[in-house]
């Protein structure tokens, strides 16, 4: 565990010293500011549009961080051979993989945290500026704490994306890993449609295949409750808990897979 923590801290240090990360955070903050300006231009719906844009940009920037750092982490160590001296130290390859993952998750959570704070700051300001009559008409308060549920699920979704990116990067090139990870992410968002596949297709094998994929592929659409939260529709604690557990179990599966693949690998 000590080794895992040690590697994780080093990953975090690497990403903090990587200027790409700063610019991503900066861009997210800028986007939230832009959404604020946009809200000024469209009458009435501004609070909803800002919530939409804010949640979407947290999700998208988190995704960029998860994928584009996740795919490079292990690959870079192998490609530059820095892993040679590292693996001669008393750590197992599984600890290496877990440490890399933990470090990236730490980076990700810090980033999501920064974005969330900026997001809520804009919302609090907007709520404070508006006259009470308008505020009454909103379905939910500006700085609605229910959105934390949506952000929490986004965080778990991105942790799963990170795990998948890491898994692919234990055996393939960054480009291929990015394509595969993003591909899975897109497919995972159409997951609900796989269930209803027999509505559009009659071929039995195709339906079975869709069913199997529906059960086995990560169901990313389950993590997306942005629209519900923005429209102040209730999302039960049970749903949040069940989805979170699903995400964490899936993460464990992918990480064990990554550790197994990585433990067998030859570094030619």
């Amino acid at each position: 565990m000590r080794a895992v923590r040690h590697i994780a801290v080093n990953v975090f240090r690497e990403s903090v010293r990587d200027k790409v990360l700063y610019s991503l955070v900066l861009f997210a903050v800028l986007l939230i500011a832009t959404s604020y300006l946009l809200g000024q231009l469209t009458a009435g719906q501004d609070i909803k549009i800002i919530k939409d844009l804010g949640l979407a940009s947290i999700s998208v920037f988190g995704l960029l961080i998860a994928v584009f750092i996740g795919i490079g982490l292990v690959w870079k160590e192998v490609e530059r051979r820095s892993i040679y001296s590292l693996l001669a130290k008393p750590i197992s390859r599984a600890e290496f993989v877990l440490g890399k993952y933990a470090g990236l998750v730490l980076t990700l959570l810090v980033n999501i945290g920064v974005m969330t704070i900026a997001f809520y700051a804009v919302l609090v300001y907007l709520g404070w500026r508006e006259i009470p009559e308008v505020r009454e008409a909103w379905p939910a308060p500006a700085a609605d704490p229910a959105m934390l549920g949506a952000i929490g699920l986004i965080a778990i979704e991105l942790m799963l994306v990170t795990a998948i990116a890491l898994f692919f990067s234990t055996f393939s090139s960054p480009f291929l890993s990015a394509v595969l990870t993003l591909g899975l992410w897109v497919v995972g968002h159409f997951n609900a449609d796989l269930r209803d596949f027999e509505a559009v297709v009659e071929s039995r094998p195709a339906v079975w295949l869709a069913r199997t994929l529906y059960y086995v592929l990560p169901n990313f659409s389950a993590f997306d409750i942005k629209a519900q939260v923005v429209h102040a529709q209730p999302v039960g604690v049970g749903y949040l808990a069940q989805t979170a557990i699903y995400g964490l179990v899936y993460i464990a599966l992918v990480l064990v897979g990554a550790a197994v693949v990585f433990s067998r690998r030859d570094f030619k």
């Binding site: 059960y215 086995v216 169901n219 989805t243 557990i245 699903y246 179990v249």
Partner: peptide, 12 residues
Amino acid sequence: LLAAVVGLQALR
């Protein structure tokens, strides 16, 4: 873990 994932998806 795979069984758990499928089970949770079925539960969902």
